[in-house]
Protein backbone atom coordinates (compact mmCIF):
# COMPACT_ATOMS: atom_id res chain seq x y z
CA UNK A 1 0.00 0.00 0.00
CA UNK A 2 1.32 3.39 -0.93
CA UNK A 3 0.40 6.25 1.37
CA UNK A 4 -0.34 9.69 0.10
CA UNK A 5 2.95 10.83 1.59
CA UNK A 6 5.05 8.35 -0.35
CA UNK A 7 3.66 8.88 -3.79
CA UNK A 8 7.15 8.83 -5.20
CA UNK A 9 7.86 7.50 -8.62
CA UNK A 10 10.09 4.81 -7.16
CA UNK A 11 7.32 3.60 -4.84
CA UNK A 12 4.92 3.45 -7.78
CA UNK A 13 7.32 1.34 -9.86
CA UNK A 14 7.60 -1.06 -6.89
CA UNK A 15 3.85 -1.15 -6.59
CA UNK A 16 3.45 -1.97 -10.28
CA UNK A 17 5.67 -5.04 -9.76
CA UNK A 18 2.63 -6.68 -8.18
CA UNK A 19 0.71 -6.62 -11.47
CA UNK A 20 1.43 -9.82 -13.39
CA UNK A 21 0.93 -10.73 -17.02
CA UNK A 22 -2.23 -12.89 -16.80
CA UNK A 23 -0.90 -15.26 -19.48
CA UNK A 24 2.52 -15.66 -17.84
CA UNK A 25 1.68 -15.12 -14.17
CA UNK A 26 5.29 -15.20 -12.92
CA UNK A 27 6.19 -12.14 -14.91
CA UNK A 28 5.33 -8.65 -13.69
CA UNK A 29 4.39 -5.96 -16.17
CA UNK A 30 7.54 -4.08 -15.13
CA UNK A 31 9.83 -7.07 -15.78
CA UNK A 32 8.07 -7.64 -19.10
CA UNK A 33 9.05 -4.10 -20.07
CA UNK A 34 5.62 -2.89 -21.14
CA UNK A 35 5.29 -0.04 -18.61
CA UNK A 36 7.15 2.77 -20.33
CA UNK A 37 6.49 5.81 -18.18
CA UNK A 38 5.07 6.78 -14.80
CA UNK A 39 4.14 10.40 -14.23
CA UNK A 40 2.72 11.57 -10.90
CA UNK A 41 0.79 14.64 -12.00
CA UNK A 42 -0.34 15.63 -8.49
CA UNK A 43 -1.37 13.84 -5.32
CA UNK A 44 -4.61 12.64 -6.92
CA UNK A 45 -3.60 12.10 -10.51
CA UNK A 46 -1.23 9.65 -12.14
CA UNK A 47 -0.46 8.86 -15.78
CA UNK A 48 0.98 5.55 -16.92
CA UNK A 49 2.17 4.82 -20.47
CA UNK A 50 1.87 1.17 -21.48
CA UNK A 51 2.94 -0.48 -24.73
CA UNK A 52 1.52 -3.78 -25.98
CA UNK A 53 3.75 -6.80 -26.64
CA UNK A 54 1.73 -7.65 -29.76
CA UNK A 55 -1.00 -5.57 -31.45
CA UNK A 56 -3.64 -8.18 -30.73
CA UNK A 57 -2.48 -9.31 -27.29
CA UNK A 58 -5.71 -10.09 -25.41
CA UNK A 59 -3.96 -9.70 -22.05
CA UNK A 60 -3.58 -5.94 -22.54
CA UNK A 61 -7.17 -5.10 -21.61
CA UNK A 62 -6.87 -7.11 -18.40
CA UNK A 63 -3.51 -5.53 -17.57
CA UNK A 64 -4.85 -2.00 -18.07
CA UNK A 65 -7.76 -2.75 -15.76
CA UNK A 66 -5.49 -4.27 -13.11
CA UNK A 67 -3.24 -1.21 -13.21
CA UNK A 68 -6.22 1.11 -12.86
CA UNK A 69 -7.70 -0.79 -9.91
CA UNK A 70 -4.34 -1.00 -8.13
CA UNK A 71 -3.69 2.73 -8.42
CA UNK A 72 -7.24 3.63 -7.36
CA UNK A 73 -6.85 1.38 -4.33
CA UNK A 74 -3.67 3.21 -3.48
CA UNK A 75 -5.21 6.61 -3.18
CA UNK A 76 -5.21 8.07 -6.66
CA UNK A 77 -8.51 9.50 -7.83
CA UNK A 78 -7.62 10.01 -11.45
CA UNK A 79 -5.70 7.29 -13.30
CA UNK A 80 -4.78 7.91 -16.94
CA UNK A 81 -3.51 4.88 -18.82
CA UNK A 82 -2.22 5.67 -22.26
CA UNK A 83 -1.24 3.21 -24.94
CA UNK A 84 1.96 4.02 -26.80
CA UNK A 85 3.06 2.08 -29.90
CA UNK A 86 6.35 3.75 -30.72
CA UNK A 87 9.06 2.77 -30.03
CA UNK A 88 7.69 -0.73 -30.49
CA UNK A 89 8.15 -3.21 -27.66
CA UNK A 90 11.02 -5.64 -27.94
CA UNK A 91 12.06 -8.64 -25.88
CA UNK A 92 15.28 -6.70 -25.15
CA UNK A 93 13.22 -4.68 -22.65
CA UNK A 94 12.58 -7.73 -20.49
CA UNK A 95 14.56 -7.55 -17.25
CA UNK A 96 17.18 -10.15 -16.29
CA UNK A 97 15.06 -10.96 -13.25
CA UNK A 98 12.09 -11.53 -15.55
CA UNK A 99 14.11 -13.89 -17.74
CA UNK A 100 15.20 -15.92 -14.69
CA UNK A 101 11.59 -16.14 -13.52
CA UNK A 102 10.44 -17.32 -16.93
CA UNK A 103 13.05 -20.07 -16.97
CA UNK A 104 12.13 -21.24 -13.48
CA UNK A 105 8.51 -21.37 -14.67
CA UNK A 106 9.46 -23.68 -17.57
CA UNK A 107 9.48 -21.14 -20.42
CA UNK A 108 12.72 -20.59 -22.30
CA UNK A 109 13.45 -16.84 -22.06
CA UNK A 110 14.30 -14.78 -25.14
CA UNK A 111 17.99 -15.00 -26.01
CA UNK A 112 20.06 -12.45 -24.09
CA UNK A 113 21.59 -10.92 -27.18
CA UNK A 114 18.69 -10.46 -29.53
CA UNK A 115 19.37 -10.89 -33.18
CA UNK A 116 16.94 -8.81 -35.21
CA UNK A 117 14.06 -10.99 -36.26
CA UNK A 118 14.67 -11.56 -39.94
CA UNK A 119 12.03 -12.43 -42.55
CA UNK A 120 14.13 -15.03 -44.39
CA UNK A 121 12.63 -18.50 -44.66
CA UNK A 122 14.28 -21.39 -42.82
CA UNK A 123 16.78 -19.01 -41.24
CA UNK A 124 19.13 -20.74 -38.81
CA UNK A 125 18.13 -20.00 -35.23
CA UNK A 126 20.57 -19.79 -32.40
CA UNK A 127 20.28 -22.75 -30.06
CA UNK A 128 17.46 -22.37 -27.54
CA UNK A 129 18.19 -23.84 -24.14
CA UNK A 130 15.77 -26.34 -22.61
CA UNK A 131 14.46 -24.75 -19.38
CA UNK A 132 14.12 -28.21 -17.77
CA UNK A 133 17.44 -30.02 -18.32
CA UNK A 134 19.42 -27.02 -19.68
CA UNK A 135 20.45 -28.88 -22.83
CA UNK A 136 21.00 -26.86 -26.00
CA UNK A 137 20.07 -29.91 -28.05
CA UNK A 138 16.55 -28.74 -28.94
CA UNK A 139 14.35 -28.37 -32.00
CA UNK A 140 11.63 -26.01 -33.19
CA UNK A 141 8.25 -27.77 -33.30
CA UNK A 142 6.12 -24.80 -34.36
CA UNK A 143 6.73 -21.09 -34.93
CA UNK A 144 3.46 -20.40 -33.12
CA UNK A 145 2.48 -21.56 -29.65
CA UNK A 146 -0.06 -21.09 -26.90
CA UNK A 147 0.12 -17.27 -26.96
CA UNK A 148 1.25 -14.64 -29.49
CA UNK A 149 4.62 -14.24 -27.76
CA UNK A 150 5.70 -17.89 -27.74
CA UNK A 151 6.93 -20.62 -30.09
CA UNK A 152 6.89 -24.34 -29.38
CA UNK A 153 10.12 -26.29 -28.93
CA UNK A 154 11.12 -29.77 -27.86
CA UNK A 155 14.23 -30.90 -26.02
CA UNK A 156 15.97 -33.76 -27.83
CA UNK A 157 17.71 -34.91 -24.63
CA UNK A 158 15.00 -34.94 -21.97
CA UNK A 159 12.27 -35.10 -24.68
CA UNK A 160 10.12 -32.53 -22.88
CA UNK A 161 8.23 -30.01 -25.01
CA UNK A 162 8.56 -26.39 -23.88
CA UNK A 163 7.54 -22.86 -24.81
CA UNK A 164 10.11 -20.35 -26.02
CA UNK A 165 9.42 -16.64 -25.55
CA UNK A 166 10.25 -15.80 -29.13
CA UNK A 167 12.34 -13.19 -30.86
CA UNK A 168 10.45 -9.91 -31.25
Amino acid sequence: MVNRSNHTEEAIWQLLETVKDPEVPVLSVVDLGIVRKVIIEDENTISIAVTPTYSGCPAMDVIRMQLRILLLENGFKQVNIQQVLSPAWTTDWMSEKGKEQLKAYGIAPPLPKQTVCHPDAFQEEEAIQCPHCLSYHTRLVSRFGSTACKALYQCLDCKEPFDYFKCH
Binding site: S55, A88, T90, C117, P119, Q123, R143
Partner: peptide, 14 residues
Protein backbone atom coordinates in the same frame (compact mmCIF):
# COMPACT_ATOMS: atom_id res chain seq x y z
CA UNK B 1 3.18 0.70 -38.98
CA UNK B 2 6.31 0.46 -36.79
CA UNK B 3 4.47 -1.79 -34.35
CA UNK B 4 2.82 -3.95 -37.03
CA UNK B 5 5.85 -4.51 -39.23
CA UNK B 6 7.49 -6.64 -36.55
CA UNK B 7 4.51 -8.98 -36.50
CA UNK B 8 4.30 -9.00 -40.30
CA UNK B 9 7.99 -9.97 -40.52
CA UNK B 10 7.24 -13.13 -38.59
CA UNK B 11 4.21 -13.94 -40.78
CA UNK B 12 6.38 -13.41 -43.84
CA UNK B 13 8.94 -15.89 -42.56
CA UNK B 14 6.27 -18.48 -41.73
Amino acid sequence: AEKSVKEVTYHLKW
